[in-house]
Design a protein around this nucleic acid. Structure first.
Lengths: 167, 167
DNA sequence: CTCATCTCAGGCTGACTGAGATCT
DNA sequence: CAGATCTCAGTCGGCCTGAGATGA
């Protein structure tokens, strides 16, 4: 057996938490972030991946459109695009049809970095889902998608809590 | 091109994100927190629920033990216990067998509040999982548990990234 | 005028790090 | 002495609000 002098054995979470979806999601989000962070060169690259992936998949877009697609705050997105531009991974150009907008476009260098990020992030997913069989992974992703799609469509609002008395 | 008058329709996330477990977990954790927060009277009550549930389920425990079980930072736990004590929901007592430790115990009032929290949090789960059938919910929770158990046991460490060149 | 877009400024929270005092 | 526990202080990123300037 492991002779591990175990300085601090984990200790099991209460059953009520182990069955609580919101708690499980939070634990796994935290683990995901640590894992992805460990596989990425620099921190903060998580938003970069999302933006670059969206630009490559759907072509140039305004910042507001990206914010809506990725559910990132518009204000925070300003800084992300700033960094991408500084690194030459994307460019801000005025939109001819609507001069309020910036048309954000991915560059060749951006596509290259995106491929690197893709690789690192996939490695992190592998660790994240390690204990699951391929079929289980598909089932899981399908269920998660259903939930995300549902709430994404329903908007971010707390969605009116039924006439419940606001104690 | 699209003359879309719509003020701000959601806008679909890129397919690569829609299939990315770490992204899905993050989205759902955020949604969970907003939902639970909306159902709870006061904010910050999320950690309270975890602590009270653990105390009721397994009896008195030290702060370090609670931190390990709930994966909450020891430092942050100090403030949580402070609040619980101020509200009379738990008490700190010196541990006779090990004077470094505080034995945290749930009070009668704590059990009452716990029942309230339980109710509100379950209502939030209902909204969170709304689009899923009961059988799907069970499958989902089982898969999430498998992952959380795996990573909980493996510790929180990034778990050594194989000899991979640290680019 | 109303509304959308981009930007900046600031606040809040949760997760984390580091250090010190106490005790085993 | 090493190691565990509790506490406090401070950092950092994500998420949110509000406001201003520009333009549809």
């Amino acid at each position: 057996m492991t002779i591990r002098p175990a300085p601090s054995p984990p200790g099991d979470p209460p059953e009520r938490l182990r069955r609580l979806p919101s708690w499980l999601f939070n634990r796994l989000a935290g683990r995901s972030n640590r894992l992805v962070g460990a596989h990425l060169d620099r921190p903060g690259r998580r938003a970069d991946y999302a933006v670059l992936a969206s630009l490559e998949e759907s072509g140039p877009a305004s910042q507001a459109e990206l914010a809506r697609r990725l559910a990132i705050d518009r204000g925070d997105l300003v800084g992300v695009i700033d960094r991408l531009e500084d690194d030459g991974l994307a460019v801000r150009r005025p939109d001819r049809n609507d001069r309020r907008r910036n048309a954000i476009t991915i560059t060749a260098a951006g596509r290259r970095i995106l491929a690197d990020l893709q690789h690192d992030i996939e490695a992190a997913q592998e660790e994240l889902l390690a204990p699951l069989e391929p079929a289980q992974r598909e089932t899981l992703v399908a269920l998660l998608q259903t939930l995300v799609d549902h709430h994404h469509a329903a908007g971010q609002e707390p969605e009116e809590i039924g006439g419940r008395p606001r104690r």
